[in-house]
Amino acid sequence: MLSQSSTVYRILFAISLVHLLNDSLQAVIPAVLPILQTNLNLSYFNLGVILLVMNMTASVFQPVIGYFSDRKPRPVLLPLGMLSSGLGMLGIAFAPNYAVLLVAVAFVGLGSAVFHPEASKVAYLASGARRGLGQSIFQVGGNSGQALAPIMTTLIFIPLGQGGAAWFSLTALLALGVLLFIAYWYGKREKINKAMKSAAALYNHKNQRITALILLVLFVSVRSWIQASYQSFYPLYLIHDFGYSMSAAELYMFVYMLAGAVGTFFGGPIADRFGKRNLLIVSTLGALPFTLLIPYVTGFWAYPLLMINGLIMMSSFSVAVVYAQELMPGRVGMVSGLITGLSFGMGGIGASALGKMADSLGLSFVIIFCSIMPVIGLIGFFLPKDATLEEWEQEAA
């Protein structure tokens, strides 16, 4: 039997693959927005509400599911969540009106809400002592799936239209098969609760930990506003303000999201060397000089600008999860749900607000507004240092 410190790479890569497939299903929604806007005659506010429904259903339930799964693991939830996402894909493909579309989007969001906290626990268990590396492997799968959105638009939705979403039910079916294998391993893993329980440490410096967690959720929430802006509104900005074709605009997003996936992968090892808190700060404030240029740079030079921005800003994606897990020991599922779920739901609220802002003030104002938002990195200076978290852990030992 493997020890608690052993790293089970086959499970890490398997859950990362499913993360890629799951988040590629989520990425269908922003990718198909230009098609839906035309087919169903939707306003920018309507598009923002779609993102709101997606993010809220995919996020609000995550910490709740994580809380209860911390008490008792439920491996069966993994394949059931993927089944919900597959049904949602079919609903999006054949939705005849806006109301049906929102229900289908909610199914996809619910499936994601079930997947993420349980999958984060699987990654936690499979990582052993190498949690930073394990979380990077897991999260890079999700970011790679999100990066597929622009390619989906170009290769699938432009030629096939809204009905192209039906093909992604096959993606859900493939993910379901892999999850059955993972769920079997997860269910057989002995003493899962013991592996997740160091809850006594949670009550050491409890108030400071909770305050830091609130700040961290705020940090990730604002970062997700920026992500929602670029992923959903930047291509429309290029199309409507600069006359780009849909394919050309989506190519810029592919470069940005792909660079973000690379940044996510290397962020974990970098944080292990230089500190998680330090990377959280650098990944936002360090991106600010580049985000300030994004509204004004088009053509060839926009590619390296977006690439550098994606590399820097998304380098702390997995690090935020690991930092939260160390901040709140014994609550791995719950805090994973908060960081990857609830905070991104807040990003959905931001997307809705940004859509309303775009209707009133124009897309260019939204992109400029989001270009200054990385100043949120200043919050990082109020978070406990890595050394402080280690001291708290030693005190509770």
Rank of each mutant, 00 (worst) to 15 (best):
I349V: 15
I192L: 08
Y244H: 09
A58G: 11
Y252E: 06
F317V: 04
N22F: 14
F242T: 02
G275Y: 14
Q325V: 07
L383P: 09
S283Q: 13
V103K: 01
W392P: 04
M253E: 11
F266I: 08
F365N: 05
V282L: 02
G48T: 07
V366H: 10
V322L: 11
I214H: 05
K206H: 15
V262R: 01
L173E: 10
S315C: 02
V335H: 12
L80C: 08
L21T: 02
L238W: 10
V220E: 15
C370A: 06
S247V: 07
F300M: 12
A271M: 05
I270E: 12
D359C: 12
L77A: 01
D272F: 01
S144P: 04
L236T: 08
R277D: 09
G380H: 09
F290W: 09
H116T: 00
G268M: 08
S16K: 05
S336G: 14
I158C: 06
A119S: 03
Q231K: 08
L180N: 11
E393S: 10
Y256R: 04
Y184K: 14
W225Y: 14
S3K: 06
V8N: 06
A259M: 12
M253K: 05
I11K: 10
G141T: 11
M334G: 13
Q325R: 02
K194H: 15
G161H: 03
V297Y: 10
R131F: 09
P73R: 05
K188C: 01
A119Y: 05
V217F: 10
V49G: 03
D386T: 02
A248V: 14
L40Y: 13
L83P: 12
T291Y: 10
F290R: 00
T298L: 04
F300W: 12
Y124L: 03
A261C: 03
L102E: 12
T340S: 15
V366C: 06
D386I: 03
L258I: 15
L47P: 06
Y252H: 09
K191N: 15
Y67A: 13
A397C: 12
N46C: 07
P30T: 01
I349R: 00
M257Q: 07
S316E: 12
F107S: 01
Y9L: 03
L36A: 03
N41D: 10
A27F: 11
L155M: 11
A123F: 04
F274Q: 00
G299V: 07
L173I: 07
N22L: 11
T57M: 13
K194V: 14
G86R: 01
I158W: 07
D23C: 04
P34V: 02
G187K: 00
L215N: 06
W301I: 00
N55E: 15
G142A: 01
I15S: 06
V178E: 13
K385W: 08
M314E: 13
Y67G: 10
I270M: 12
Y234G: 00
L83D: 09
F107M: 07
R10I: 14
I367L: 02
H240G: 06
I308P: 13
Y296L: 06
F382N: 01
N97C: 15
T171D: 12
V375A: 01
V114R: 01
P34D: 09
L216R: 08
R277N: 03
E190H: 11
F265A: 04
L378N: 03
I379F: 12
S245M: 08
M1D: 08
H205E: 11
F233R: 00
T57D: 05
L293H: 09
W225K: 07
P374H: 08
N41L: 14
I239W: 06
